[in-house]
Design a protein around this nucleic acid. Structure first.
Length: 424
DNA sequence: TCTGGGGTCCTAGGACCC
DNA sequence: TCTGGGGTCCTAGGACCC
């Protein structure tokens, strides 16, 4: 068996870099990009990081700092980021045969066997130079015998400028020297809670975790953490997934722009989320049988009583007709709705998926499919994607007050003709 | 006043069945 | 009367990722 070899290519400050691509006037100025509802910071340019602005900090807590340092603030513009991401991924796919798009701003490359015929280090340098040249976004490249080590290598490439954007961790001694320097919480798969518990056990660095006994780790934590230990030791537990796995659930949920306290508004919100979830379901060419609905108050307001409830239900047969899920969703909402709370967030989840034509009806199930369901849903999706107006259900409400805040949105430079940047 | 959204995987506990 | 143990399904929750 050929030993495996991976590279991780990760864009630098991706959302902030996308915003700056079209605003050369912002060169050198700190940039932050905000989450939905303009709630908290989800991306920072290098300058913003230097100001000490932390990831995920609520905006209102740093409002003064943003003003004082003249920080450029953007609402997140996913249409723009997705388009730039596609260009980066396409370029990588032209350079390497097997690419796994892991998230909007990073991809794993399968280099196994490739190292027999090409110079891996040169390939990494080519990627490092070509992506900024062609797309306008800078990247770092990490190389290692497992995904976890490639991640770690990438982390080092970002942290230490002397590496000039490429770190190659094929050598075991190099792996150990680096791991000794890296705190355990920087390891992929080790988050805040696990770090706390590992620290109590005296495990503080990546190397100490690598040297821990896998069996002990499994018994104390879980198989997931055990796998991480093995990966740190160069044992590959996670192959490249070139084709995105079929989704197992679809979630549509939002915090409200302002709190909801009446049933009618909540019914509209649930209908809206149901509508979006079904759109996604059809774009995945799937049919769902299960649905759950949840509502909750804000976990951050400790003065008022908290309420959080979810409930699942099931259709008799899988469907992707929005009307079926609107009916089910509303009845689930009825059961969990409690008057007298200031609701901050709600959502719907679809699950238990079937491909077209897979599901067998029970012998005595008496359900006639809706006539023309497919045609109607296709028409709905077509109109709504055409850019010429929208069709929606009356139950979604018109111009709801609880809708999302996006006050700092940049233009859709690359995906709407009317918003193309102008070169003077 | 103001704290994201969309995913995955794993585990524990209760109900129910044989 | 025998009240054990294993399997499955469901729900809820924890933890992680970007």
């Amino acid at each position: 068996m050929t030993p495996s070899l991976f590279a991780l290519v990760d864009c630098n400050n991706f959302y902030a870099s996308c915003e700056r691509m079209f605003r050369p006037d912002l060169a050198g100025r700190p940039i932050v990009v905000l989450s939905n509802n303009d709630g908290c910071v989800v991306a920072r340019s290098a300058e913003a990081k230097q100001l000490g602005i932390k990831m995920a900090v609520p905006v209102y807590q740093i409002a003064n700092q943003l003003r004082q340092h003249h920080v450029a603030v953007f609402s997140s513009n996913y249409a723009l980021y997705a388009d730039i991401s596609n260009r980066v991924m396409t370029t990588l796919e032209q350079m390497v045969p097997k690419v796994e798009v892991y998230s909007i701003d990073e991809a794993f490359l399968d280099l196994s066997r490739l190292d027999k015929c090409i110079d891996i280090h040169q390939l990494a340098l080519d990627i490092y130079q070509r992506i900024p040249q062609w797309i306008g976004i800078s990247v770092c490249v990490g190389i290692g015998p497992t995904k976890t080590l490639a991640k770690l290598a990438n982390h080092a490439a970002k942290r230490y400028p002397a590496t000039r954007g490429v770190v190659d961790l094929r050598d075991r001694e190099r792996q150990r020297r680096l791991m000794a320097l890296i705190p355990v919480d920087e390891v992929w798969g080790i988050g805040r809670r696990l770090t706390k518990r590992l620290n109590i056990m005296g495990i503080n660095t990546a190397l100490q975790l690598a040297d821990a006994h896998p069996k002990l780790i499994r018994d104390t934590f879980s198989v997931t953490v055990e796998r991480t230990v093995r990966e740190l030791n160069g044992i590959d537990c996670d192959d490249i997934q070139e084709v995105a796995a079929t989704k197992q659930q679809i979630i549509s949920s939002r915090s409200f722009g302002s709190r909801i306290d009446n049933l009618e508004a909540m019914q509209q919100a649930i209908n809206e989320y149901t509508f979006r979830a079904c759109e996604k379901l059809r774009s995945e060419r799937q049919y769902a049988k299960a649905m759950s609905v949840f509502v909750r108050t804000s976990p951050f307001s400790d003065a008022t009583p908290q309420y959080s409830k979810s409930l699942s239900g099931s259709l008799v047969r899988p469907s992707n007709d929005t009307r079926d899920f609107v009916t089910l969703g509303q009845s689930l909402l009825q059961s969990i709705w409690r008057e007298g709370h200031a609701y901050a967030k709600a959502g719907v989840m679809l699950g238990d998926f079937f491909g077209a034509g897979v599901f067998q009806l029970g012998l005595f199930d008496d359900v006639t499919p809706r006539p023309k369901s497919k045609e109607l849903m296709q028409l709905l999706d077509k109109v709504n994607h055409s850019g010429h107006g929208k069709i929606w259900f009356a139950g979604q409400g018109i111009d709801p007050t609880w809708g999302m805040k996006r006050e700092q949105l940049s233009p859709r430079y690359t995906t709407q003709w009317a918003q193309l940047p102008i070169v003077k």
